[in-house]
Design a protein around this nucleic acid. Structure first.
Lengths: 255, 255
DNA sequence: CGGCTATTTGAGTCTAGTCAAAGCCTGTGG
DNA sequence: CCACAGGCTTTGACTAGACTCAAATAGCCG
């Protein structure tokens, strides 16, 4: 038997679906219905093998505002977001904070760590996630090397994002940063209607801490983009992009 | 067996050390004497298995100033630096540039890519490197999963570095950026004598493009650190750190 | 309707950028 | 050995974009 072109001889014959216990089967079904089933890590395994991941997953709910990863703590777990959204950030001693990323459904959290986490993570919406013990996940990936390969792909993608963010933080002006962000967020949440308003789950303060700006500057820049007719800013954290071409041009996003 | 293709079935039994051809053996010996032998990727395999990597490596010399990776080009290769140093960067259309990292001996280049490179790479010193075709390297890693694991470790480490750089670019002042850089460079090149002057292979302009500043600001900040007695700046791109504690305090580097 | 938080707007300041010029190395050739 | 050319670096004067401080406005939820 091969999965993803890799020889897995014997593995499927040792643990057959019929041998899965009731609890495991129940969670496996939850797994198959999960919004994140066909994204990132979980998409690496076929339904037949999914129980290996499902059995390793510890499901939990995180309240809005709760910090579930703390910078400097021993990096014992990975996380996969199934519901909601969170911000990842690093702090300086005097309180200055840089948000290094926002994660949502299907995103994998915890790669940016050696023996200790290099970042903190806080839910900005109620979050449902699967926690994986690093040791346990390593055991699963020893059986399914495709998992390690997928993690590498995820890490590579995150590196690309990180470098684009360095370009943004190091070289772009305030208006370029905001425009880049909106255009990038639009592409991420691209669902159906290109004209549908974007849902921004984060506060202005989060946006500022992500873009290396202050709340006031973000607010002023959004007002300016609104006056230019590029976006429409609603009160309920929704922003409609009225002129994509102009937004992309301002944001210097030709990627 | 094919090398350059994907199928390597049975290769370990077909190609025994005794069966390695002269050229291959010669390069393997070069491999074992390589400055990068016990770092990063190459450290993943024991001497006994090293020839699998050695055979996949295409060695080449890159002149100072030569660009060997171009942003946007198809990402067909990985690179491992054996000698010299290079800068990795992204450009905006109007010429603004952000250097996303410097790489030296033992560093692995090319993870930050999907189907196309997200960055460009230019030698800032004469470089010797091993080029790996991604397909070929994948074939080797299919046989030695430890390689994929090592790549994941490398990517994780790069993510940590990238996040620290985002914190620097988004939240630190000019003097904090320069101090952070010097302290970080010191830790990287930590060889023996803590008082030995640091060798900075890059120009002031590179430093500025790495730190999100201008040449003039970098120069002014270095002058300020010199006047404060924190560093001694020599003309030949060498800088001695006179007061590590103070430098670390200024740079807010407590990691 | 209040009380609270989030956001917007305004006025003034400051850090780092821009423009300009001088100084300093390094290598070359007389 | 010295003069010169070129690029790199430093320093100075001024500017500008983003920050700080402050106040007004707008949502939200009891």
């Amino acid at each position: 038997m091969t999965v993803g072109g890799i020889d897995l001889s014997g593995s499927a014959t040792i643990v057959r679906p019929a041998a899965i216990n009731i609890l495991s089967r129940h969670e496996l079904e939850a797994c198959k219905r999960c919004d994140a089933r066909h994204q990132g890590l979980c998409d690496a395994l076929h339904d037949d093998d999914l129980h290996f991941l499902s059995d390793a997953a510890h499901r939990s709910a995180i309240a809005k505002g709760e910090v579930f990863v703390t910078e400097g703590n021993p990096a014992r777990n990975f996380f996969n977001i199934n519901q909601g959204a969170a911000k990842l950030y690093m702090d300086l001693a005097d309180g200055r904070r840089q948000i290094t990323g926002f994660v949502g459904v299907g995103d994998f959290v915890g790669l940016a760590a050696g023996t200790r986490y290099a970042f903190s993570a806080e839910a900005i919406e109620p979050v449902q996630l699967c926690r994986f013990d690093r040791i346990e996940l390593r055991a699963v990936s020893a059986r399914f090397p495709v998992i390690e390969r997928r993690l590498l792909e995820i890490a590579s993608h995150e590196l690309v994002i990180a470098q684009e963010q360095m370009l943004l933080l190091g070289r772009k002006t305030a208006i370029e940063r905001v425009a880049s962000f909106l255009e990038g967020w639009y592409r991420r949440t691209l669902c159906a209607d290109p004209g549908a308003p974007l849902d921004l789950p984060m506060l202005r303060g989060d946006l500022a801490e992500y873009l290396g700006l202050t709340i006031e500057t973000v607010s002023r820049v959004l007002a300016s983009l609104r006056r230019q007719g590029v976006v429409a800013v609603a009160a309920d954290h929704r922003i409609s992009i009225l002129d994509h071409a102009r937004l992309a041009a301002i944001g210097q996003t030709f990627a």
